[in-house]
Amino acid sequence: MPTATFPGRFDSLAAISKFIIDSAKSAGLDDMATYDVELAVDEACCNIIEHAYGGEDKGEIECECEVTDEGLTVTLRDWGEAFDPKEIDEIDYSKPMEEIGPRGAGLMMIRKAMDDVEFVFGEDGNVLKISKKK
């Protein structure tokens, strides 16, 4: 199972994407499904850096890719602050553009791009497990 650890910095994002794309291709995902995973992982890693760690260079991000019969499962682990996903409101697009802000956009995109999204907050870090079917 390919696993890699990256520094929690925004300049790690391109390398993380490359790692994900290689695994998605091994799992047999098509180009758009691969892009969905690449995007979801990027959003999740940004949330880890910005919110769990509260900035760059505060901790690491462990990334594990599991090729399954159905597709690809990516597990991201960090050791920053936990959060309650239920407390993140969905963006209300019925509001005028001036009143809409970016808070929650990343989480919303992860949920829409992936088939399964599971958060586990425990003693051994914060874990996000996301799966995409072929």
């Binding site: 994407s17 892009y35 690449e38 995007l39 990027d42 959003e43 940004c46 553009m97 001036e98 809409i100 970016p102 956009a105 990343g106 995109m109």
Partner: peptide, 16 residues
């Protein structure tokens, strides 16, 4: 070839 929400929100703030 790739744009995440951070880029999308740069475009949104510019549009506003």
């Amino acid at each position: 070839d790739f744009i995440s929400s951070s880029g999308v929100w740069v475009l949104m703030e510019t549009q506003k």
